[in-house]
């Protein structure tokens, strides 16, 4: 590799040579180009090592916003250009680490398809940008029942307050896995609004939703307590100490009430 190649590090066409830092420049640009070419035909059974230069470029570009953005752009371009499932899998794993708002639109396009929904969330759930949350929130009403639990789960992990209404409507879904995911997500979101929805639903819960809803209420109450909302937490705990609950849930509720009563 020539010194000129070393310094240009053409992660993306149009990137100015001077933009790359020394660290990024040390990555072999020709090897990165080859890896991106390989990606176009990469499929199950191909040698994973052929993509290692991209892995190394990601490590080397840490702290170099320009180079990182160029690398992300190139990954997104590859994904949008049509890849095998294995190559899509690879790119989404990389975007989990380097993805930003500029990746969201392309990833969001993969959410409705059964083959790609999860791997798109694999990236989106971990991209710390509101646009990623928004994309999953918008996809929720459009995807099949099979995919809904995943998107609900991701919104729950991100504690998306704006999804509460939509998720709460799914508590009574005829698909038990959708309904259970909805309960769990509301528990994780853990706001007073989420608590109200859980509390309302818990009053007439069916037998097969009893355990998930009780669990969600306890998790929600713990979050409320951690956020200093003692009265809301106590109310939720109080709902779970009745004889209609199994012993371990009643004990959990009593412990929670005690914790709430003594919390300063």
């Amino acid at each position: 590799m020539t010194s000129k190649e070393m310094t240009t590090m053409t992660l993306a066409s149009g990137v100015a040579a001077g933009a790359a830092t020394q660290a990024v420049a040390q990555t072999d640009s020709a090897a990165v180009d080859n890896a991106f070419n390989t990606l176009k035909t990469y499929d199950w059974g191909a040698d994973r090592a052929a993509l290692n230069p991209i892995d190394q470029a990601i490590i080397a570009s840490h702290g170099d916003a320009v180079a990182r953005k160029a690398l992300e752009k190139r990954l997104v371009g590859a994904l949008a250009g049509g890849l095998s499932r294995s190559a899509q899998d690879y790119v989404c794993r990389k975007l989990r680490v380097v993805g930003t708002a500029q990746s969201v639109e392309t990833l969001a396009a993969l959410l409705p398809a059964e083959q790609t929904s999860h791997i798109a969330r694999y990236a989106l759930q971990r991209i710390p940008d509101e646009k990623a949350t928004e994309a999953m929130r918008n996809a929720l009403p459009k995807v099949s029942s099979k995919l809904k639990p995943g998107i609900i789960g991701s919104l729950g992990v991100r504690r998306d307050n704006k999804s509460i209404e939509a998720i709460a409507q799914l508590l009574g879904d005829s698909d038990l896995q959708v309904a259970q995911a909805a309960a769990q997500a509301l528990g994780l979101i853990g706001t007073p609004t989420a608590a109200k929805e859980l509390s309302k639903f818990a009053k007439s819960v069916s037998a097969n939703m009893k355990v998930p809803v009780a669990d969600a209420c306890l998790i929600c109450a713990e979050q409320l307590l951690a956020d200093g909302k003692k009265s809301e937490a106590t109310a939720l705990y109080g709902q779970l100490k009745g004889d209609d609950q199994p012993a371990h849930v009643k004990v959990a509720a009593m412990k929670g009430m005690l914790a709430a009563a003594t919390k300063k």
Binding site: H62, Y122, Q125, R126, K148, P149, V157
Partner: peptide
Amino acid sequence: EANRLVDVARREPWV
């Protein structure tokens, strides 16, 4: 960036 590696998104229906 490191915080993104604290967890993974799980394949539906597992949450």
